[in-house]
């Protein structure tokens, strides 16, 4: 088995003295979609934000999260100084937020968003436009050329989320963290976005999908990790976990979402 893209061990995330996440272990492999499932408030989003190096103010993360940085020197994200972390963001780690529309700046166009990201990582100016158009096309957006001039409020929720994914993937990061990216979308837009995440894994990336929706996890993820009480209660191939849940919490989740083992 190849080394994981991200190896999280003993992650502790504390907010206001309370350990919301307490000893989480998770391995994300290349070519796989892993779903992190749990109820609201279980610390899924805090985990995602801690791994992306963007915890909310007053929240502290400890433990280790070793990222394969592609240069033979894996690095612990939780111990990296900000400037080094900044170089990894966008280039090695993509992070997409739940609030699709709100994750785009209302005052600038889609094209400026893409350009700023490319510029931040030293992509030569001449390559900006082609790469921006390519990223939008790969995100399944029709007429990418025209879309460059669109402003965020002109986009639908599904379009905005795909633009956000295009933005996070414009530099082809091997790790993509998608935090509840489909929660606010209708089923058709949801399926499109999830297909896109699957395609990332198909192209060799590691994808972490944070969701409270077990049905989403069962249908699109290769592996499912169930978060309960700040730890991973159960982890395994999606089909196995959903068909024969071993942990009582997982069993309760499966019953509640009515997917009862079939996939």
């Amino acid at each position: 088995m190849s080394p994981p893209v991200l190896d999280v061990r003993g992650l502790v995330v504390a907010a206001g003295g309370r350990r919301v996440v307490d000893g989480l272990d998770l391995r994300l492999a290349a070519g796989e979609v892993t779903a992190l499932v749990g109820r609201s408030g279980s610390g899924k989003s805090l985990t995602a934000r801690a791994l992306a190096g963007l915890p909310p103010e007053g929240v502290r993360a400890a433990g280790s999260a070793v990222l394969d940085t592609g240069d033979g020197r894996p690095r612990d994200l939780l111990a990296l100084p900000e400037p080094e972390l900044r170089r990894l963001r966008g280039r090695r780690i993509g992070y997409v937020l739940q609030e699709a529309g709100a994750s785009l700046n209302p005052t600038v166009t889609v094209g400026v968003h893409l350009r700023e990201t490319l510029r931040a990582h030293g992509t030569p100016r001449s390559g900006w436009r082609a790469r921006a158009v390519d990223a939008l096309r790969r995100a399944g957006l029709p007429a990418p050329e025209e879309l460059l001039a669109a402003r965020p409020f002109e986009l639908s929720g599904g379009q905005a989320q795909r633009v956000a994914i295009a933005l996070a993937c414009v530099l082809d990061p091997p790790l993509l963290i998608a935090d509840e990216v489909t929660s606010a979308l209708d089923p058709v837009a949801q399926a499109r976005v999830l297909d896109l995440l699957r395609a990332r894994a198909g192209a060799g990336g590691a994808v972490l999908v944070i969701t409270h929706d077990l049905a989403v996890a069962g249908r699109w993820a290769d592996r499912v990790a169930v978060l309960d009480g700040g730890r991973i209660a159960e982890e395994g191939p999606a089909a196995a976990v959903l068909a024969r849940p071993r942990h009582p919490f997982t069993a309760a989740l499966v019953r509640a979402s009515g997917i009862g083992g079939s996939r």
């Binding site: 992306a52 963001r89 966008g90 280039r91 992070y95 700046n105 600038v108 400026v112 510029r119």
Partner: peptide
């Protein structure tokens, strides 16, 4: 605290660029 600022940071923009491109115009 707005999501688009977090998103911009997560893309690797420097603090100066986030300030000039995302915070001040808004």
């Amino acid at each position: 605290g707005r999501p688009f600022v977090r998103a911009a940071t997560s893309l690797g923009l420097s603090r100066t660029r986030v300030l000039l491109r995302h915070l001040v115009p808004n």
